[in-house]
Simulated scan of single mutants.
Amino acid sequence: MKSIKVFLVEDHNIVRNGIRTLLERQPDIEIAEEAETVNETLEKLRTGIQVDVILSDINMPDLSGLDLINIIKPEFPDIRIIMLTMLDHENYIKQTITAGASGYLLKNIDIEQMLFAIRHIAAGGRYICSEVVFEMLKKQLNSPTEAVTGQSVDLSQREEEVLHLIADGFTNQEIADKLFTSRRTVEGHRQNLLEKTGTKNTATLIRYAIRNSIIN
């Protein structure tokens, strides 16, 4: 099985070491490199190391995470970038996603949500953690120009159960516990929901479900 090569960009040693320890326990994830600044990140990338995903803070000593995206995406377009931050303001989210980030995670998320995001994004998807989804949805659903509609989709009873629990803000592990199944099975249901609805992340999945009366 090919491992996902992750580059950690974080200037706080304790935070970076904690994330590395958690990720190194996963058989399908490998820490390819680490850096404390944007410039150090660029220097190491230009040596030719293989990287699938960059997991980066927004606030760093030299440049910002947004600068990192703007510099790296044109030079290394195949590398997926995930922002991991304490900043939950909508403007930061919009700016980083618009610039080319594939994911936006808050540092208070649990490890299961982080692992799902890394795996999903490495496979080509996008992900915004559920903690920031709902406030954004309120504005989007109240906008008359915003509409997410589609043809009816055929969801299994278990997929509908998982969808409702996702909408309620439960993590993959919490959903697994509630449904007496494994976290991997829940991840599979979540991926099926994204594929069946043609959505790319939790925010658009929930918006699709609301617009199409799958959930209320």
Score class of each variant (00 low, 15 high):
E10K: 08
R126F: 09
H12S: 12
L194Q: 02
I81A: 12
D62Q: 03
L155D: 01
V132N: 05
T96L: 07
L87Q: 03
V153Y: 01
A123T: 10
L165T: 11
G103A: 11
F134K: 14
H89A: 04
L68I: 01
T98A: 13
A147V: 07
N172I: 05
G169M: 05
I118L: 06
L165Q: 15
N70I: 01
C129L: 08
M60K: 02
I111Y: 08
P27Q: 08
L105N: 13
Q26H: 06
D110L: 12
Q50P: 06
Q113V: 14
S213A: 03
L105D: 05
H120F: 13
A209M: 02
A35K: 10
P77R: 13
A176F: 05
H164E: 15
A99Y: 10
I69V: 14
I109Q: 13
Q113G: 14
G125R: 06
G198T: 04
K178I: 15
V9I: 12
D168V: 02
G125L: 07
G100H: 11
L155E: 01
V153M: 05
E146S: 11
D28H: 13
N201S: 05
T41D: 07
G125M: 12
T37N: 10
P144G: 09
F7W: 11
K196S: 04
L8Q: 03
G65D: 07
T181Q: 08
T202Q: 03
V51H: 13
E36D: 11
E10Y: 04
I49A: 10
I54C: 11
N192D: 14
N13K: 13
Q191S: 13
G188I: 06
R184T: 13
H12Q: 14
T181N: 10
G188L: 06
Q26T: 12
D11V: 06
N59E: 11
N201F: 02
Q95A: 09
K5Y: 03
G124M: 09
R184E: 14
